[in-house]
Structures are given as C-alpha cells and as structure tokens.
Amino acid sequence: MNNFIFGQYIPGKSLIYRLNPRLKLIASVLLIIASFINHNLLGFIILLGICGVIIQVSQVGWIFFIKGTQFFIYMIFLTSILQILFSNGGTIYWHYGIFTISSFGLQIASLAFLRFLVAIVILTVYLMTTNPAEIAQTIQGICYPLKFVGVNLDDIGLVTAIALRFMPTLTEEVNNLRNAQKSRGVNFEKCSIIKRIKSNIAILVPLFMSVFRRAEQLAATMILRGYTDGKHRTHIRQSNWSKFDSLILIVVLLIFGLILSLNINF
C-alpha cells in the first residue's frame, strides 16, 4: 500500500548504476527531448521499447517499478481523459453537453500521455539508480556557465543535495500522515472530488508545517556546525568516463537522430 517511491535512490549493482552520472543525465535529457518532439507512432514504439530495456537492465524489478510510478501514471491518465473530453476539432465522434470526443482531442491526449509516460519512466530510473551526491555534483557541473553571472555553484550543489536527501523523508512523512488520517476514516481511494480535495488538505497542512519545522531545524544545525556560504567545497567522489560510457552516448545520439529524422517532413 505505502509503496510510493518516486525520487528515491535504491542501492544496486546493475549496469546502469555503473554508468557515469553525467552521461546518465545527458542521455535522460536527450531521450525526454526526443519523446517531446516526436509525433510519430513508430517513434513512440522505439522510445517505449528503450524504456522497457532500461527498466529491465536496471534490475529494480518490474512490479516494484510499476507500483512506484503508478500514482504518476494514473495522474497523467486522468489528465488525458479530461483533455479528450474537453477539446474539440477534426471529426467528432460523440457529443454530450460540454463534453465532446473528437479526433483532435484523442490525438492530443494520446500524444501527451505517451510523452509524459516516457519522461516519468526515464526520470524515475535516473533517480532510482543514481546516488544523490552524484546527482548534486552533476547538476552543479551543468550549471557551470551560471558562474559567470554571479551564481554560487556550491549553493546549487548543496540545495540539490538537500532536496534529494529529504525526498525519502518527505515520502515517509506523507505515508505517516496518510495512515493517521485513514485511521480517522478518510477513504482516499473511493470518494467524491470534493471529499478527495478535503482529504488531501488533511495531509498537506500538517506536511507543510513539518517541512517548515524541518527546514528551520536544518538551518540551525548547519549554522551550529560551522556552515558559512561562499566557501569553496571539494567533493568526496570523483566520477570517471569510460569507453563504455562513450559507446552509450553514441547509441543515445543515434536514437535521438533517428527520432528526429522520423519527424522531419520531406
């Protein structure tokens, strides 16, 4: 029941874990961009196939993966349904009051659904298989150009690291609050929209209170342990780029090119 796992690092040893974290981010971004520019059925078949391969290779387990992402998939599914019902154009198949099902709506909704599906799968695998410290370091590296407009890179790294560090804590907090309110008779699975919004307030209000409390405590303990901003910090891990990483990069670039060419109208 409480298997909401988005954004959580799951230690493991499969191939994907051993890839260079920078490569993983670049590859993820490329694949997500590819899925967003794609309009083509074949393109989505290829991208979903790649998603399948990635999940399989990551060895996190299919059931676990589906359980962990089903909330997001359910959300984008709902959004797509709304999009189908409320957009209008092309051939109209069905019409009732303000609702219409049209070829235009179906097309837009299925595009959006597939794109977000690919994005969620790839992001989830990235977060599951990459150590938070490495993610923070990568983000810091990517933001390097911002240095010249006066942004402090160490701050960016630290903020990312803290945000990732608190993901599991917040997930746990959400689960605890859900449990507490379920015990007071809230039924999150089956009720009207109004009730559902109300039940979510019962979680969000205490959640925000606790986030603020934690932030305050964290700031205090950091100051007490001598943290000052503006000092340069070094990293405990150094990642290196292997030949295999280059190979993967080439493959991903090829896929990107393929999707791109599928979508160019000659």
């Binding site: 609050l177 507490a180 008779g185 307030i201 205490p206």
Partner: peptide, 24 residues
C-alpha cells in the same frame, strides 16, 4: 479488499507517534 477495511478502522482506533503532527 481495501473496501472492507473501513469497518475495521471504525472499530480499531490508532494513535500514532507524535500524533500532534496530524492536526490540520
């Protein structure tokens, strides 16, 4: 099935650790 659990929750009240955090 989760539908059958509401009666159980009515019969068994649960007070969590640091229950003051659940007020809203």
């Amino acid at each position: 099935k989760s539908k059958q659990l509401n009666l159980v929750r009515k019969n068994v009240g649960m007070v969590f650790q640091f229950s003051e955090n659940q007020l809203f």
